[in-house]
């Protein structure tokens, strides 16, 4: 028993899901189905790929063509699928560790190619599946099970990283800002090129407990309070900028898309041969 949208796009027989109480993965996954529904995509034509981690379990619950691959490699598998059949709508779901640590190389190169894949990062700043180790997005001084004395690393800004590497669409929102999230997902999927939506997410079980962030509700409240649109941020007085995180659209441009360019090569060669 659940909503029409969940009945339509989820594999009900596999629910309830494995995620912890308060984990925002369900919120983000449902928002993705809202975007797909509003875009009117053909369910048979949608491919959702993932790597390994908590968020990477999402495809198993989604009623599309779904592929749960190896750790970090989701974008490389997705690249093969998209190039082999460019008509498919290919979406990658990844966690921060999956896509920016072990899969970081695949992220920057998929972005560089501008291949038409939408990457959605569930960024909870921690490795959840393995029990709370620090990730490339864990803030400096925050704690993880492998940073018991405080993290000395500097975190990646995934949305900016993708934009710098060549993504033609890149934005960041949070698991709290559901309406904005649905809009960003729609814009990202509609973009003919590599798109990144980083969703600031929460892990009450590991990140929250290690960092005394409070309950899931309190962590959601923090997303609501601490994230501010980058335009609004500029207008804030200096003293109010402290502790704020930026969200918004960082890049939205049009450039030639990889599979379309490859098709041009095919067409030129095949046209050339026919003329011979």
């Amino acid at each position: 028993m659940t909503s029409e949208i969940v009945q339509k796009y989820f594999r009900i027989e596999n629910l309830p899901h494995i995620w912890c109480p308060g984990c925002s993965n369900g919120v983000v996954t449902r928002a993705l189905t809202m975007a797909i529904d509003e875009l009117g995509l053909d369910q048979d034509n949608v491919v959702v790929v993932s790597g390994i981690g908590c968020s990477s379990r999402a495809p198993g619950y989604l009623d599309f063509n779904t592929l749960h691959t190896t750790h970090g490699r989701g974008l490389a598998f997705a690249t093969g699928i998209k190039l082999a059949n460019p008509k498919l709508d290919v979406i990658l779901i990844a966690g921060d560790g999956d896509v920016s640590a072990i899969g970081g190389n695949h992220l920057i190169h998929a972005a560089r190619r501008n291949i038409d894949i939408t990457t959605i990062v569930f960024n909870n700043n921690i490795y959840g599946m393995t029990g709370g180790q620090y990730s490339p997005t864990t803030p400096t001084a925050a704690k993880g099970t492998t940073a018991p004395h405080g993290n000395i690393d500097k975190p990646f800004d995934i949305a900016q990283l993708a934009a710098a590497a060549g993504a033609t669409y890149s934005s960041r929102t949070t698991a709290y800002h559901v309406n904005q999230m649905v809009k960003y997902f729609k814009d990202a999927i509609s973009n003919k090129g590599f798109s990144m939506v980083e969703v600031a997410s929460i892990c009450p079980t590991y990140y929250g407990r290690k960092n005394k962030s409070g309950s899931g509700v309190q962590m959601m409240q923090a997303l609501k309070n601490d994230f501010i649109d980058k335009m609004a941020y500029e207008k804030l007085p200096e003293e109010k900028k402290e502790g704020k995180h930026l969200m918004g659209v960082f890049k939205n441009i049009t450039l030639p898309e990889y599979t379309a360019e490859y098709q041009r090569v095919i067409d030129a060669l095949q046209g050339g041969e026919n003329n011979e």
Partner: peptide, 11 residues
Amino acid sequence: KLCPDFAIWIG
């Protein structure tokens, strides 16, 4: 929108 478990909805 904010239910992570699809357990509450308008129907």
